[in-house]
Design a protein around this nucleic acid. Sequence first.
DNA 1: GGGCAGCGTTCGGATTCCGTATGGGGGACC
DNA 2: GGTCCCCCATACGGAATCCGAACGCTGCCC
Lengths: 229, 229
Amino acid sequence: MSDRILVVDDEEQIRRALRRALVARGYDVEVAVDGEDALSAFGTFAPDVVVLDLNMPGIDGIEVTHRLRSWSSVPILVLSVREDEADKVRALDLGADDYLTKPFGVPELLARIRALLRRSEPSPAHTRFAVGDVLIDLTDRTVRRGGAAMHLTKTEWSLLDALARNPGKLLTHGWLLHAVWGEGYGEDVEVLRVFISQLRRKVEPDPAHPSLIITEAGVGYRWAQAPAG
Amino acid sequence: MSDRILVVDDEEQIRRALRRALVARGYDVEVAVDGEDALSAFGTFAPDVVVLDLNMPGIDGIEVTHRLRSWSSVPILVLSVREDEADKVRALDLGADDYLTKPFGVPELLARIRALLRRSEPSPAHTRFAVGDVLIDLTDRTVRRGGAAMHLTKTEWSLLDALARNPGKLLTHGWLLHAVWGEGYGEDVEVLRVFISQLRRKVEPDPAHPSLIITEAGVGYRWAQAPAG
DNA sequence: GGGCAGCGTTCGGATTCCGTATGGGGGACC
DNA sequence: GGTCCCCCATACGGAATCCGAACGCTGCCC
């Protein structure tokens, strides 16, 4: 049973290239030429991943992301051009999972799709993580490193929780600020940086070279680890 | 014998999707459309896990959690939307075990249900603790330090019991207040502090430097010791 | 090479939160 | 009615936490 991928782009050339590359790779591919087309194709095709161009006439990628997210958690990989940085962030805020900037290489696209598929595979339990000698339990709210219990403050835990419950997903500054500090903390990225730093010190096997909390410059952060036993 | 799951949600679409996914996975599933329905279904169906939407008309998820917890310890998995952060926290305070934010993926739901089932497997019923020269037995309701029996009042016992039966787990102020004082004591953390202090004096090897009852500032307390003997 | 933008880290004052002493009030029991 | 015990409201010194500000670093663009 091969994985199903819905490709949404208004440029004929790109649709053809992506379809060819993905089919060659063994995926089951459907294409849509605009937003409306995408939404109806989504219903009948039930894809495992959506590759979505942002810049389209009519219902654009932002709007498609918004509508899909109101009832589906299908992984969404967003395509944008370098000039549309703001749109990219907006799509991620609305729940897109990752992005690629045009032009991009096919190997990179494939790698990102694999990552998204891997993330949605059933795993033993999305409630515990193990990395090096660090062990995290989301239900007990415990973090141990090498057996010793680490103490996380309320805010640190809230941040860790927000990250770890969305493994692999790129979370924007704005999204994290809202998730941890609630309304009214707008775009105060400084505070976020301070707590990311503190959290890394307590949770990363090697805080100087983060392997768990990955920074995505100009956009946000990403929890890199898949849950484990 | 398959595990029994009660799904409570007022949206027809979600009920159907969850039922299908869970039945396909081999679970025995019953659905309820609102709070009242859920409470009566709980009595006849006796589920091993409850999946409970928070936002419902009439008796909502918070209230259902509250009522279930007054006489059952069935694992409760709460579903909420990201905007209802406060409701989520309240449900956890009242005894819900985990939460998922809508929209979520089916694999993630399955993983969390498995985690809850695993967690509720027959616990060793360990009810004895030894730390330093202090010996605690929850079944006999005795505490000895260096051979001498200590006397605990009713409330102190209740608090000790609530803590020690959840070793390692962070228990919020709200949860503890509800567990020990029942309804109506809302968020009166002051009382809790007084009794924690008294309990420490009787139970901690060195009350000035707690090793058993760990305080989590702004959140709650945690019983740090694993059961022994 | 200089300027700039984004990032990580440290420091410390303001604020919130905590532990504990104290005592009033009420119920149980004699 | 008296005594004892327990609950819990209050007060206050001290500890923990938050988060704004400052600084140095890196990579990028002109």
